[in-house]
Amino acid sequence: VNVKKLKVSELKEELKKRRLSDKGLKAELMERLQAALDDEE
Rank of each mutant, 00 (worst) to 15 (best):
R18C: 02
L25M: 14
L20R: 05
V8S: 11
L20C: 04
L29W: 01
K7M: 11
E14V: 01
K26T: 14
K23C: 14
E13V: 09
V8G: 07
E41V: 11
E10Y: 01
G24E: 01
A36I: 03
L11Q: 02
E28K: 03
E14T: 00
K16D: 12
V3S: 03
D38V: 09
K23D: 14
K17H: 07
K17S: 10
L15V: 01
L15S: 00
K17D: 03
Q34L: 06
L33N: 02
K17C: 07
R18K: 04
L29Q: 14
K17Y: 01
E41R: 15
E13M: 10
V3W: 05
E28S: 07
S21Y: 02
E10T: 08
L11V: 08
A35N: 07
G24R: 00
E13R: 09
E13H: 08
K4Y: 07
K23W: 11
L15H: 00
K23S: 15
A35P: 05
E40Q: 12
K5C: 11
M30F: 01
K23I: 12
L25C: 15
D22W: 07
E41Q: 14
D38G: 09
K26D: 13
A36F: 10
E41D: 09
E10A: 07
E40G: 10
A35F: 04
L6H: 00
V3G: 04
R19D: 14
Q34I: 06
E41S: 11
E13Y: 05
K4A: 13
K5R: 12
E28A: 10
K5F: 09
A27G: 15
D39Y: 14
K26V: 13
E28M: 04
K12C: 03
K23L: 14
V8F: 09
K17P: 01
K16I: 11
R18G: 02
L25R: 15
A36N: 08
K23N: 15
E41T: 15
E10G: 04
E31S: 10
V8I: 00
R18L: 06
A36H: 03
V8R: 07
V3D: 06
D38T: 08
M30G: 05
A36Q: 07
L25D: 15
M30I: 04
K17E: 05
Q34K: 07
K4E: 15
L25Y: 09
L25A: 15
G24V: 01
V3R: 02
E31I: 06
L37P: 09
A35S: 12
E40T: 09
G24M: 00
V1D: 02
K7V: 10
L29F: 01
L15N: 00
N2Y: 03
E41G: 15
L33H: 08
R19G: 13
A27M: 12
D22A: 13
V1M: 13
E14I: 01
L29D: 09
L33M: 05
D38P: 05
E40I: 15
R18V: 02
K12T: 00
L20M: 10
D22K: 03
K4W: 13
A35Y: 06
S21V: 05
K5H: 14
E40F: 00
L33G: 08
S9T: 11
K12D: 03
V1F: 12
L33W: 00
L25E: 15
D38Y: 09
